Amino acid sequence: MARIGVVTFPGTLDDRDAARAVRLAGAESVNLFHADSSLQDVDAVVLPGGFSYGDYLRAGAISRFSPIMERVVDAANGGMPVLGICNGFQVLTEVHLLPGSMIKNDHLHFVCRDQVLRVENNDTAWTNAYEAGEEITIPLKNQDGQYVADEHTLDEPRGRGPRRVPLRGREPQRLAPRHRGRDQRARQRGGPHASPRARRRGGLRPRLA
């Protein structure tokens, strides 16, 4: 059975979720902490999401100096699979295991939605249980979710094809303007898409059955 280490920093929120996902995938979850000096002979490492060290300075900036990250960097350079999720991805850019950086979303708002991903390459440690071309849905939530890098870095994955991009996102579906206007008017007058307050104002009551 594979042993997958899940790293917890001060401010990490999603380490329990990551550990549960590891177990559901059939592996053993191993708790690793920011101050540890050993990876406990794990076969791979997950850096989960959250707000490591409160995101002071910038997201992931302080975590790069944690003792465990020196071991993670050495292991990754030696070929060990490392997965960074949300804040974990930001930490990986700070230790330069990944190029580029993450900044705030261009609209400066927190994003929380389901995101559809297409499996472009299923020949990786993290995607080999999927079929090539399969579509999966994951929860997406971030505020610093805008990836920035120089043009050479951005062009490199595209130039090498899908093997450098194992998962590709699909834009979320949005209502056409006329539908948005129609639904907005329906909400205002207590129609079928109305909010509970508008339903009460329009004389409608939610169905309890």
Rank of each mutant, 00 (worst) to 15 (best):
M1L: 03
A2E: 14
A2L: 15
R3M: 08
V6K: 08
V7S: 13
T12G: 01
D14N: 14
D15H: 14
D17Q: 13
A21D: 00
V22T: 03
V22K: 08
R23P: 02
R23Q: 14
L24V: 14
L24G: 12
G26I: 00
A27S: 14
E28G: 01
S29A: 15
V30G: 05
N31Y: 14
F33S: 10
H34F: 15
H34P: 11
V42T: 12
D43M: 11
A44Y: 07
V46Y: 05
P48Y: 07
G50V: 09
L57S: 07
R58V: 01
R58P: 01
A59G: 12
G60K: 04
A61I: 03
A61F: 03
I62D: 01
S63Y: 10
R64L: 04
S66P: 04
I68G: 13
M69V: 00
M69C: 04
E70T: 14
V72Q: 07
D74H: 02
N77M: 12
G78A: 15
G78E: 14
G84T: 11
G84N: 06
G84C: 07
I85F: 09
C86W: 07
G88P: 05
V91S: 10
L92Q: 01
L97D: 11
P99L: 11
G100S: 04
S101C: 00
M102A: 05
K104R: 15
N105F: 13
D106V: 10
H107Y: 07
F110H: 15
L117T: 01
V119Y: 01
N121W: 12
N122I: 10
D123W: 08
T124N: 06
T124Q: 03
T124S: 08
N128F: 09
A129R: 15
Y130N: 08
P139V: 06
P139T: 02
L140G: 05
L140S: 12
N142F: 09
Q143P: 01
G145S: 01
A149L: 06
A149R: 14
E151R: 15
E151G: 00
L154A: 00
R158E: 03
R158A: 06
G159Y: 00
P162S: 05
V165W: 00
L167G: 08
R168Q: 11
R168T: 13
G169V: 09
Q173K: 12
A176M: 09
P177L: 04
P177A: 11
R180H: 09
G181I: 08
R182K: 12
D183H: 10
Q184A: 15
A186P: 04
R189P: 00
G191A: 04
P192N: 05
P192C: 05
A194E: 02
P196G: 01
R197H: 01
R199I: 00
R199V: 08
R200Y: 08
R205H: 15
R205P: 07
R205C: 09
R207E: 06
A209C: 02
